[in-house]
Write a protein that binds this DNA or RNA. Sequence first.
DNA 1: TTGTAGGCGTTATCAG
DNA 2: CTGATAACGCCTACAA
Lengths: 336, 336
Amino acid sequence: MDAINIKVLAEKLGLSTSTVSRAFRGNSDINAKTKQRILETAETLGYQPNMYASSLRDQKSKTIAIVVPEFANNFFSQAIHGIEREARMNGYHTLIYVTDDDYEKEASFVTQICNGRVEGVIMSVSGEGHRHQYLELLAKRGIPLVFFDRYYDDVAATKVTANDYESSYAATKHLLDKGCSRVAYLVVNKHVSIGKIRLQGYVDALRDYGMAADDDLIVECTNDRYEIRRRLAESFGRLQPDGIFAAVERLAIATYRFCSEEGIAIPENLKVIGFSSLEIADLLNPALSTVTQPAYEMGATAAAVLFRALKAGEKRTGNESIILPSVLMERKSSAG
Amino acid sequence: MDAINIKVLAEKLGLSTSTVSRAFRGNSDINAKTKQRILETAETLGYQPNMYASSLRDQKSKTIAIVVPEFANNFFSQAIHGIEREARMNGYHTLIYVTDDDYEKEASFVTQICNGRVEGVIMSVSGEGHRHQYLELLAKRGIPLVFFDRYYDDVAATKVTANDYESSYAATKHLLDKGCSRVAYLVVNKHVSIGKIRLQGYVDALRDYGMAADDDLIVECTNDRYEIRRRLAESFGRLQPDGIFAAVERLAIATYRFCSEEGIAIPENLKVIGFSSLEIADLLNPALSTVTQPAYEMGATAAAVLFRALKAGEKRTGNESIILPSVLMERKSSAG
DNA sequence: TTGTAGGCGTTATCAG
DNA sequence: CTGATAACGCCTACAA
């Protein structure tokens, strides 16, 4: 009934608690027969060493935290999967925190886990443009941090991203090659890390093609589907774009919905390409051209960096960037 | 540098640890000014009460575990999101464990978290047909358990599912209504809870339409895409179905891929409907008819049940079923 | 090879 | 209102 502890187990066996403890730790010397007897009894009694006592003593929790802006999103699902896998391989447990793109929540979560709950943190950020003094808490506590996909420029930690600038440049160039002359860039927030870098790729590609980027064609949306709908309606009416480059999957999907409702033919009247981790982009109507980030690998890589730091006993990860290649998949939605 | 603890904080303030501790607990009496002074100093020093010490003392971890078979799956993503949300509202932290449909891993995870790491468990199972004595550990430890979607018949705990039988019956009837006479049922494992119940709905609908279920038309697949492809190829060649009812999203998608490769027209040559939580089923080519489970709500409900039990101090959840309604969305893939 | 003892950081209890 | 103290369960020097 009540959780059994090392003391009652020791009593039941007529041994001391230290001996019992030793049976569970790999290293210490202990008679093989004694050990076996202890483990067997523990098994039948369902004894497990209390992790909070162990953690308290060793100052180790064997736990990491993943902090992400959203969850119902293919990119993050796959990335988290990669992290979870790596964590498992290293014998670590994984806490998940979803900020809903809310800076306050991010700050609150990070503050909460600085109490020893975790040994390391992997995060994709939500609070650009705000102060992130709460991250100093991690540093102060010696809890290593790794960013993936979305990061803060001003925080020293390893950042795992995809080659967003190059992909963005390539995607824009692709639309131009297919004959587009008015390519709109759809983005959630053009000032945050990924939105900004992807924007730069878009702008530079236009420039290299002898076109000035038209500010009107840079359409900032939100994450709210009705708001997105409104922005699209307004932009299409006014701007008459013949190409859409969506900085995130959600906006590519919204474009599809909009076109379907408005009777705009893709790719005849409008060519579309977007960042997306959708595994069935090829089954859409029409098949969606995508820039696909190596989501799983990004998660796994971020985790690998973190565990390397943890193993080495480092208090922080190096302030460096690891850039993984995305893949540009040309499909029907942008066919010439 | 080193994690600051209550003792040094107390010294720095010229107070006792008890007083400092009181400043962080809501209840105890403490001078308002003293409290403020403590909290301010704590803030600047970045002090957070160590959770392992607290947990050890209170035997409370404020943590739950989610155990699921897979991750890169819309249904589970949404369900986990629902759970995470509910956990957050209750001030709980959320550990994630992915079993990859592996019974051994499931057993291992459950055993691991019985060491006090979590106060409750929400799970969707992977090990049907095996023994689940490891779940008795939870009971022994007084850790409440709630199943969602996939459960064990022989374990007493609350089960949150969708009305799979009715949906399955309705989906099958829908295909028959549309003129199908040879409806195949694609399933991963027809002997596990959901595969079995959904099979029953299919069989009963056929029977009520005066058709005997043909065992050949019940196609068991795996989770491996190549294996699925092989099964489909074999089945189509031999059985010439004119309707497909897929018990899980992955099989509906596989059917689409197969048909696209083989030039089978949907819905003209083959009508398709499947269980799916895909939010863009309407954008597929052709739009996929679906049975959509309330994934988010299932997760949220399972979590609500768990937290009610935790709040009430109950050691286990009641052996009851909570059944939420799915929605049948008729789209082009099954049009008559 | 086994046992003893102290302490990890916190908080509830009790005394002041 | 504040301070001293014991206990949560485990692990590791150190002693035997």
